[in-house]
């Protein structure tokens, strides 16, 4: 079976020359939920931007067996849905409807198809009836849900989510994790919220200073305290804070 995503020898430097990703190799099976964890500035977001070709650089990214190039770009973007960290960036339209409809319209769906997808996507995230609202007036939790709906409406096979639980209160966070658990697609979740990672992902990849430093089952990574500590994912030993395992 084809891999959902296969990354080979991917390196990337920022325009100012600073290297953000160094020789990344990673493959993700269809149906997997993989966490991408690492300290601030590890290159998580940069890596995510490569998954649907917003950033392109040396190395190859293969999506569902198709190498990402100029020809396949449009197709890849319809298969890989990228949800950004700040819903304020993701929701740029005057109304919720316009935002959720943006993807399907760009994909060339017919009017009826667009409407069907919008109502299904909003239903999927439990936000029916919000079509006419302005994103500006929603709570952060609601914005996150709508942001997910804007991607679901494109009916992607792979969901890539950057920091899904950032800025959420514990209840909203719990609800969002439940929502993500119900989505059947392949998921890649970048986060340093280990609680969310444990609830969502079977496999965890640790990224630090632009390199993959560990790739294993979530369980074994979470129980490896020295590893977590070494990459900024747990308080230093001797610190009075203790992370619950």
């Amino acid at each position: 079976m084809e891999k959902a995503i296969q990354i080979e020898n991917l390196s990337y430097s920022y325009p100012d020359g600073q290297q953000a990703l160094k020789d990344i190799n990673l493959s993700i099976e269809v149906g997997e939920t993989v966490a991408l964890v690492g300290p601030n500035g590890a290159g998580k977001s940069t890596l995510l931007l490569h998954l649907n070709g917003i950033l392109r650089s040396d190395g190859t990214v293969t999506v569902l067996g198709v190498p990402l190039d100029n020809k396949s770009l449009k197709w890849v973007r319809s298969k890989v849905g990228l949800i950004f960290q700040d819903p304020e960036d993701q929701l740029f339209s005057p109304t919720v409807f316009d935002d959720v409809a943006f993807g399907p319209i760009n994909m060339g769906c017919s009017q009826d198809e667009v409407r069907r997808r919008v109502s299904e996507a909003l239903e999927g995230v439990g936000m029916e009836g919000y079509e006419k609202r302005s994103p500006h007036h929603l709570s952060i939790g609601e914005k996150k849900r709508i942001a997910i709906a804007t991607i679901l409406s494109m009916e992607p096979e792979i969901l890539v989510i950057d920091e899904p639980t950032a800025n959420l209160d514990p209840r909203a966070k719990g609800e969002l994790i439940e929502l993500l658990q119900q989505l059947p697609m392949t998921k890649i979740v970048a986060s340093h919220d280990l609680e969310a990672v444990k609830a969502l992902c079977q496999r965890t990849v640790i990224l630090d200073e632009g390199q993959v430093v560990a790739d294993d089952s979530t369980q074994s990574i979470m129980s490896n305290n020295p590893l977590l500590e070494g990459h900024g994912l747990a308080p230093r030993s001797g610190s009075s804070l203790k992370l619950k395992a």
Binding site: L49, F84, D86, D89, F92
Partner: peptide, 22 residues
Amino acid sequence: ERGERVYAAMVARGFDGNPRTL
């Protein structure tokens, strides 16, 4: 910077420079 992120979010959803709406 927000402008750049918004543009990335648009591109990620298939925006190719031609605005279309219903």
